[in-house]
């Protein structure tokens, strides 16, 4: 296993940095607002919020082109936003509306936009990694330089699908990257219980591929590790595994009282390891970006999310006929 020396690697351009900040801020604002709106009872079903983990989606997707693919998890809003899905259509989908990204047939757990290379949030833990092997095979057979990235959690990393996919990707030498977002809890069960004392990234050794552990709160650490893995995949060097150690700010799903967590656990992380604060400090301290430029983005994002929620609430419901459409191709 290798570790990434972030200081040694190239910094992203100012435009890239601003874009990544906008992605992270959009995710945060989206999720914080959903946390509030869900409590009003207006959102059907259940939602799993990504707040706290933004640096991972942003740091990985910064390296992806529109025709690259990602597979996501039940905690998928952040991946969608980072891969370029329309935020307003996402919000409508979460409200179950006809104009939602999936016409109200998927909801929070299944938001997808194939045109943006987003293969879907996935209600099945460990559902994504096999799909991404298919993406890798497709790129390889068709001779494109596309890459597939599977996001999964620490819970998903204990599924057979994950381990089988690592092996298949290695055996077929596929352009795939497996990103484990280890936020310490599979629902309420601690990673300390469900995996025995070793980094999940170390499993890469068993499949003959590189594996690294990075700080999932640190955009730059994720950015560098993902850059390396994605470049290797694109160049035919095969798959990699990246474990991002991170924390989620909200519960497994909304409504989770999180009594399994330590008192002040989240508060401490929010204070010390918040990805947006860390990012802002680093770029302003280095004189790369003015604080005011970030604040302007904050303003714009807040307005966008306000509009998204407003429009989603007012959007039309699906019609009865929509129940029966889109199940088979018509011919």
């Amino acid at each position: 296993m290798t570790t990434v020396d972030t200081a040694r690697l190239r910094e992203p351009s100012k435009e890239e940095l601003l874009e990544s900040y906008r992605v992270m801020r959009t995710i945060r604002e989206f999720e914080d607002r959903l946390h509030v709106e869900f409590a009003t009872g207006e959102i059907p079903g259940f939602v799993h919020l990504y707040a706290g983990e933004e640096a991972i989606a942003a740091g990985v997707c910064a390296h992806l082109n529109e025709d690259d693919y990602i597979a996501s998890t039940h905690r998928g809003h952040g991946h969608c936003i980072a891969k370029g899905c329309d935020v307003k259509a996402m919000m409508k989908e979460i409200y179950g509306k006809k104009d939602g990204l999936c016409h109200g047939k998927g909801g929070s757990m299944h938001i997808a936009d194939l045109d943006k290379g987003m293969l879907g949030a996935n209600g099945i833990v460990g559902g994504g990694p096999p799909l991404v092997c298919g993406v890798g095979l497709s790129a390889k057979v068709r001779g494109t330089k596309q890459v597939g990235v599977a996001f999964t959690g620490d819970g998903g990393s204990n599924q057979g699908t994950f381990l089988e996919s690592l092996n298949l990707a290695a055996v077929w030498n596929l352009p795939c990257v497996f990103v484990v977002e280890n936020n310490g809890y599979a629902e309420s069960t601690s990673t300390n219980f469900s995996t025995r004392g070793i980094d999940i990234a170390k499993r890469a050794d068993g499949f003959g591929m590189p594996g690294v552990v990075v700080d999932g709160h640190d955009f730059f650490a994720v950015y560098e590790a993902a850059g390396e893995a994605i470049r290797r995949a694109r160049e035919g060097g095969g798959p990699s595994l990246i474990e991002c150690k991170v924390n989620r700010y909200y519960g497994h799903f909304e409504g989770d009282a999180q009594t399994y967590r330590a008192p002040n656990e989240v508060e401490n992380i929010r204070r010390e390891r918040d990805c947006l604060d860390m990012f802002a400090r680093r770029v302003t301290d280095a004189g790369l970006i003015e604080r005011s430029e970030l604040e302007q983005i904050d303003e714009e994002v807040r307005a966008l999310i306000d509009e998204a929620v407003e429009e989603a609430k007012a959007a039309p419901e699906p019609g009865q006929a929509d129940l029966l459409s889109d199940v088979y191709v018509s011919y």
Partner: peptide, 10 residues
């Protein structure tokens, strides 16, 4: 699991 899922992804 992996290769049937890969078929879906492909």
């Amino acid at each position: 699991s992996a290769f049937i899922g890969a078929a879906a992804g492909a």
